[in-house]
């Protein structure tokens, strides 16, 4: 693929801190390589801003290979941008046209307050995990041998697919209700599908759902937006499984 260079217009949400009001600011950025990732384009913008003695745009990022879940960004009205099954750091500028105007906004959710510019606080996810997203096994050299309990490959694979969630919050950001059901459903499913997780399944789903509600996330109305925008393609099946687990736990 031959490298091309494009000029773009950016409309970026700027907000000084959690307490301030924010607004969209417009920037022009020239000579952006189409081989650059979206975040490298933002690096270029920041370099330009720093050279102009302006404050660079704050955004979350870390691994830049689509696995840490740190990057976010609502780009042109979609979580992680127009491409599917990728995170913002894997989005490349070849997706955009010369002269295009690109809107960049932070995740919007009551449970994800903006910290600065495009950076939001996703610690609500951590608290949901702390409420029950684990198997209660202490560290010891004496657990049973890893192969002592065979696990049906189908279940193990489904469990892995659910566990592939990177906790980025795109599901919440793209859901019109700001619901975290895909995130929680994936975690509940990962354990519910494995014999190790079944022992605490009831308490887990009740505790995690309670915490999810306390955090101020909306409710699922099955629009399916989360599944489409999830960079890891986590299936809605996991929400159904959580509902099932929740009903089971509530009536037993």
């Amino acid at each position: 693929m031959a490298t091309k260079y494009i000029n773009i217009n950016l409309k970026v949400w700027r907000q000084k801190d959690a307490k301030s009001k924010g607004q969209m600011e417009t920037y022009k950025l020239n000579q952006v390589s189409t081989d650059s990732s979206f975040l490298e384009m933002l690096d270029q913008l920041n370099e330009q801003l720093i050279n102009e003695r302006k404050e660079p745009v704050a955004f979350d990022h870390d691994c830049r290979e689509g696995i840490c879940g740190m990057c976010s960004l609502y780009i042109n009205g979609r979580a992680h941008g127009p491409d599917t099954l990728i995170t913002t750091c894997q989005l490349h500028m070849r997706t955009f046209k010369d002269g295009e105007t690109i809107y960049i906004e932070p995740w919007r959710s009551k449970a994800f307050p903006v910290i600065k510019d495009l950076v939001v606080d996703r610690s609500a996810f951590d608290r949901i995990q702390q409420a029950g997203g684990f198997v209660s096994v202490n560290t010891s050299g004496n657990t049973i041998d890893a192969n002592a309990t065979p696990i049906n490959k189908h279940d193990a694979d489904r469990s892995f697919e659910a566990a592939a969630c990177i906790g980025c919050g795109a599901c919440v950001a793209s859901c019109k209700n700001g619901s975290a059901m895909l995130f929680v459903g994936a975690k509940v499913s990962q354990y519910a599908l494995l014999p190790q997780g079944k022992i605490e399944a009831h308490d887990r789903v009740l505790a995690m759902v309670r915490q999810m509600d306390e955090e101020g996330f909306g409710n699922c109305t099955n629009t399916g937006a989360c599944e489409i925008e999830c960079p890891k393609g986590i299936s809605l099946e996991n929400i159904a499984r959580m509902n099932r687990e929740y009903l089971k736990a509530s009536f037993s």
């Binding site: 684990f134 198997v135 050299g141 657990t143 049973i144 041998d145 890893a146 193990a156 694979d157 469990s159």
Partner: peptide, 15 residues
Amino acid sequence: NIIDQCVAQGVPFAR
């Protein structure tokens, strides 16, 4: 022991 511990924690290794 690491593998045993991780499996007990519910790490979904390939099978």
